[in-house]
Computed example of a mutant assay.
Amino acid sequence: MLDQIADVGRDVQRGGYSRHAYAAPELELRHWFVEQAVRRGLNVETDQNGNLWAWWGERGDDALVTGSHLDSVPGGGAFDGPLGVTSSLQAVDLLQAKGFTPNRPFAVAVFAEEEGGRFGVACLGSRLLSGAIDKDKALGLKDPDGVTLAEAMRAAGYDPDRVGKDEKALRRIGQFVELHVEQGRGLAVPVGVASSILAHGRWRFTFSGEGNHAGATLIEDRRDPMIPASHLVLAARKAARGGARATVGRIVPNPGGTNVIASTVDVWLDARDVDDARTRAMVAEISDAAGKAAREEGCELRIAEESYGGTVHFDAALRDDIAQALGGVPALPTGAGHDAGILAAHVPTAMVFVRNPTGVSHAPEEFAEQADVDEGVRALATTIEHLAS
Rank of each mutant, 00 (worst) to 15 (best):
D270L: 02
V189F: 04
A246M: 14
L318R: 12
D315R: 06
L141P: 08
G125V: 08
T279P: 04
T334H: 09
V121R: 00
N356T: 00
A293T: 04
A152P: 02
V347K: 07
A54Y: 05
I384C: 00
L269S: 06
D161L: 12
G310N: 10
F176Y: 13
A316Y: 05
D145F: 03
M226Q: 12
P25K: 02
G57Y: 09
A368W: 00
A107T: 08
R319T: 13
I303M: 07
Q175R: 15
E296P: 02
G243S: 05
A344G: 02
D374Y: 05
E167F: 04
S208M: 13
E28M: 08
R59F: 01
A244W: 11
H346Y: 06
G81Y: 12
T206S: 09
H362L: 04
E285C: 06
P333L: 10
L218A: 15
N356Q: 01
S195F: 06
A236Q: 09
G310H: 09
G117R: 13
N259F: 01
A325G: 05
I303W: 08
A63Y: 06
H213S: 06
E366T: 00
T86A: 06
R127T: 00
V177K: 15
Y22D: 03
F314A: 12
G146A: 04
V267K: 14
V265P: 03
I133F: 04
V38A: 11
V110H: 07
H31C: 07
G309I: 04
D80T: 11
L2G: 05
P330H: 11
N49D: 09
I173C: 05
R172S: 13
A368P: 00
A54H: 06
K98S: 13
F207K: 12
A91R: 11
A240E: 02
Y22P: 05
P225M: 11
G327D: 09
G215C: 12
D62H: 13
D266K: 15
F353N: 01
P253F: 03
D275M: 09
V267D: 10
P225H: 06
V34R: 05
A293D: 10
A236C: 08
G15Y: 12
A284G: 02
H346E: 00
L232G: 01
N49L: 13
A294I: 00
G41P: 09
N51A: 08
D62G: 01
G327E: 07
P102H: 04
